[in-house]
Nucleic acid binder design. Sequence first.
DNA 1: CCTACCGATCGGTAGG
DNA 2: CCTACCGATCGGTAGG
Lengths: 219, 219
Amino acid sequence: MSEAKVSAASATAARQARRGRPPKSAQERDESERRQEIVRAAARLFRERGFAATSTRDIAAAVGMQSGSPFYYFKSKTALLHTVMHDGMEQAFASQQRALQALSSDASAHQLLRVLVRNHLEVLLGPDSDFIPVMLYEWRSLSAEQHADVAALKDRYEAQWMPVLARLHEARALRAHPRVARLFIFGALNWSAKWYRPGGSLSLDELADQALLLFAGDE
Amino acid sequence: MSEAKVSAASATAARQARRGRPPKSAQERDESERRQEIVRAAARLFRERGFAATSTRDIAAAVGMQSGSPFYYFKSKTALLHTVMHDGMEQAFASQQRALQALSSDASAHQLLRVLVRNHLEVLLGPDSDFIPVMLYEWRSLSAEQHADVAALKDRYEAQWMPVLARLHEARALRAHPRVARLFIFGALNWSAKWYRPGGSLSLDELADQALLLFAGDE
DNA sequence: CCTACCGATCGGTAGG
DNA sequence: CCTACCGATCGGTAGG
């Protein structure tokens, strides 16, 4: 169990203990939804303005609360940032897992890379896509323990790319070293969060096509 | 003349008027060097901690000044950020110009791309390389006019890549569309500012080799 | 450049 | 969750 899960679970336990009843009561559900609203608003504001430039008052106002109320749900502004990053990475990993499992077991390395790239662009640029950009750009504001937790999730996510890149490298479709290629490829894709505009001339499918052409000469 | 040059020039003029004598006196030189110290310290701190998380007091302390003294040289914290970005882009462009002019006029498109990539990595990761990362990540803190000024410099810098990418595309060495390829390539290279460690196992020459292999199948 | 200062804002808390 | 609040910090300035 990750440290973040531990801390999230203990926070829930603390609220349960305070009320002295099991989870999933109507009130527990309301509270959990309210908590999620705060996380989503924080993700959006952290992305738009940056962590340091976003006040907890901004976040409170975005969900119609008073200035001190977010601290009923999160013990600090940094804990809220950590939750945004942790939840974002968990969802991204789950999405990547589903995408890979939907492929047949004899899928080519090119097909695998296409699925990984397409899913990553979805996670990065699709609907509700504030979490990963925050994760990418706000590392420095995490404590050492929070940093280690998010890094572990990120490593697990990126590790799924390595066998695919290694196969492409052996087949000479990918000429660079797989480890450096991974860093460059993530850089290229992640940067699109800075310039891509949904609804513009390029769909996510077309963007994935272009990435495949650039990295693996794919057609 | 760019807006930033205008404002920098008028700031200098204001200081001259205050003293009522021409530039380049010993005192003017000292003042200009002191100003440069502030800019370099600000670049380093803005890169390490982010603009919003760096106080003007931090910057003052880094150059041994009292808390209010940076405002003798810069009218606001944002003006200092703008100077960091503007000066960084001017130097990067000058460096790129020199690198291109050192090539013979019949250089191949592969050679041109190699020089552009190698120079960009130098600007990004070499000594005194805090300016461009700040430029890349702190756009949102600029005013509209400052933003337009830096964008113009950045456009001029990136424009020099386009004919090279177009030639490679025509030769089928670059399969993606040149415009999208440019965005992906800059993303891949710029991201290295987040993970590259000088003195590690990879030199800048080797990093450039890997980038060329990845994007243009170069050897 | 320094001294001394101001008004605004911020993260966070006690008590209900 | 809200009310009311605190101590710390911040960008910036007047006056020398």
